[in-house]
Nucleic acid binder design. Structure first.
Length: 356
DNA sequence: AAAGCGTGGGG
DNA sequence: TCCCCAAGCTT
């Protein structure tokens, strides 16, 4: 077990007081000293959005969500469909569905307020080890060990931990627990993450201005970039499929809802074939959802998901047929507001360049 | 416990 | 172009 050492936290917090990033969901360290506390709802919302997602991507979504749903009660009362539409483009859509489930659970089981308790937070939908600790520390100043990708990088370098990350996590958490400042748990957590995001970066870390340089074992060894040690990543297979953009006389596009589980669950799409592992030639319009229409091949869209790449051949046709079960014609003016994931916006834009 | 689950930006 | 990766969670 690492022994308590308050020196790194003091240096880190002194650095944070002068270099904290200005973020819309954050209360600055100066305002914290005045007793201003962040709204747990905004802390939670930002933490969910920031899971595996950059600050730059999150910003506009955070503004949109807090403007439309200013409170946990408002979000709990929202239609899931509206939440999915507002989340479209941000990725990892189970986060959006869990967002509503979590809001409902807080209304039903916690009197409409986030519990100031690590285990109670951890039990909520979409909230795991990291997010529960982050909310506990940032929103409630509870002394929780907050470990995200930034912190893993900072700590493995500081202590030169060269065991693979998957094995090293308990040791990293113990180091953080021994290091954190019980007077300022929230600022300590945010300071460590800011350091990882701006100084202790994955590539070419800026060690010269780093407040922890004098005690960094990795810098001492001469190659901080060597940490953390990660497992080799698997190769990404290519899948192929076809998507069919049907357009009505008035410009409306035929849409349908995807299945409730799996990839892009619950999101909206144009009719599509399955996305298969085969790559022996091209998918034809013979698999189109409507027979007897004149199909035009618009081109091909490549989209890279987490665990496979997709080449989608896009077909276009004019049609006035009636929407089938689970389908609807979406007017051109409403297309941008649909719950369309990026891959589908690419496909539609391939057939209708002015759609968005 | 390894795999499934998105996207956009930077080097 | 390609590879890496960014405040992870769920099953």
């Amino acid at each position: 077990m690492p022994s308590r050492d308050s020196a790194p936290a003091k240096k880190l917090l002194a650095w944070y007081d002068g270099h904290a990033r200005d973020l819309p969901w954050r209360v600055s360290p100066r305002d914290r000293t005045k007793g201003i506390r962040p709204d747990p709802y905004r802390v939670w919302l930002s933490e969910i959005m920031l899971q595996q997602t950059t600050v730059a991507a999150v910003r506009s979504y955070f503004y949109a969500f807090t403007a439309r749903w200013p409170t946990i009660a408002a979000l709990a009362a929202a239609d899931e469909e509206d939440i999915l539409k507002a989340w479209a483009g941000l990725g990892y859509y189970s986060r959006a569905r869990n967002l509503k489930k979590c809001a409902e659970a807080i209304m039903a089981d916690h009197g409409g307020a986030f519990p100031a308790d690590l285990d109670a937070l951890r039990a909520l939908p979409g909230i795991g080890d990291y997010t529960s600790a982050a909310i506990a520390a940032i929103a409630f100043d509870l002394p929780a060990a907050v470990v995200d990708g930034n912190v893993e990088r900072v700590v493995t370098r500081l202590k030169a931990i060269d065991t693979p990350l998957t094995k090293a996590k308990p040791a990293i958490k113990a180091e953080v627990a021994a290091m954190l400042d019980p007077e300022r748990p929230g600022d300590f957590a945010q300071a460590t993450m800011d350091l990882g995001a701006t100084i202790c970066t994955p590539k070419r870390p800026a060690c010269l201005p780093c407040p922890l340089r004098s005690e960094c074992a990795a810098l001492d060894q001469g190659d901080p970039e060597r940490f953390p040690v990660k497992a080799p990543k698997k190769d990404k297979p290519l899948r192929v499929g076809a998507a069919f953009v049907l357009v009505r006389d008035d410009g409306a596009v035929l849409l349908e809802k995807r299945a409730g589980t799996g990839l892009l669950a619950g999101m909206t799409q144009v009719p599509t074939t399955g996305w298969n592992a085969r790559h022996d030639g091209e998918t034809g319009s013979d698999a189109a959802p409507v027979a007897g229409t004149e199909w035009r091949r618009c081109g091909q869209v490549r989209h890279v998901f987490t665990h496979f790449a997709l080449d989608l051949t896009v077909w276009h046709a004019l049609s006035n047929h009636r929407a089938g079960d689970g389908q609807w014609w979406s007017p051109a003016s409403e297309l941008a507001g649909e719950a369309l994931p990026t891959v589908m916006k690419k496909a539609i834009a391939c057939a209708l360049p002015d759609a968005f």
